[in-house]
């Protein structure tokens, strides 16, 4: 139970930081995807079928806090996590000496997968609701590029606390490490 509370609080705090802390510190009001980084961290280390509920919870909390259509981040996070997980399964074992570099590669891949799937779903949803809130454009692409840069920097900062938190609170999913 305590583990579940810790996971919930971690996601909530990261989502609140994404909405209230980072936009104020970053130029142009564009914020790094703190919650996505946690999802990538889980997806890169554990099998998708062990972390899928956490991924869904992270998406749900972010949807609530960012006022996105409920379900958008749930689906986009799931696609990104599945992609990163599949990639991790193939790459990680073969690339042990370059593990850190590979992890940062996952951040780039995860951000791209999330960015494209989120926007595609948002565009589809906007056709349904009649209110166009986002679209693929040059500005969107530029935004995605900067988010990759910000995410790489933030992942470099958060990776160690994520690892420590996992050990300290023992919140790792059981028998799931990708070999």
């Amino acid at each position: 139970m305590l583990q579940k509370i810790i996971i919930f609080l971690t996601i909530l705090i990261l989502a609140a930081a994404q909405v209230s802390l980072f936009p104020n510190l970053m130029p142009g009001g564009l914020a790094p995807d703190a919650v996505l980084l946690l999802v990538i961290f889980w997806a890169a280390r554990y099998r998708f079928d062990r972390v899928w509920l956490r991924v869904a919870l992270a998406g749900l909390i972010l949807d609530v806090l960012t006022s996105s259509a409920l379900g958008l981040n749930v689906a986009a996070f799931a696609i990104a996590a599945f992609g990163v997980g599949s990639l991790a399964k193939r790459l990680k074992a073969a690339q042990k000496p370059l593990a850190t570099l590979v992890l940062f590669g996952f951040v780039v891949f995860g951000t791209l997968a999330y960015g494209f799937s989120f926007t595609a779903l948002a565009v589809a949803a906007s056709h349904f609701s009649g209110v166009v809130t986002t679209q693929f454009s040059g500005a969107w692409l530029a935004g995605l590029f900067f988010r990759i840069i910000y995410n790489l920097i933030l992942f470099g900062i958060l990776y160690w606390p994520f690892r420590k938190m996992e050990i300290f609170f023992q919140v790792a999913p059981t028998k799931t490490l990708i070999k």
Binding site: A56, A69, L70, G71, N73, A75, A76, F128, S129
Partner: peptide, 14 residues
């Protein structure tokens, strides 16, 4: 399952 639930929520959202 997760993508289907997400999509369903999106369409119920309006």
């Amino acid at each position: 399952i997760i993508v289907a639930i997400g999509a369903l929520l999106v369409f119920l959202n309006p």
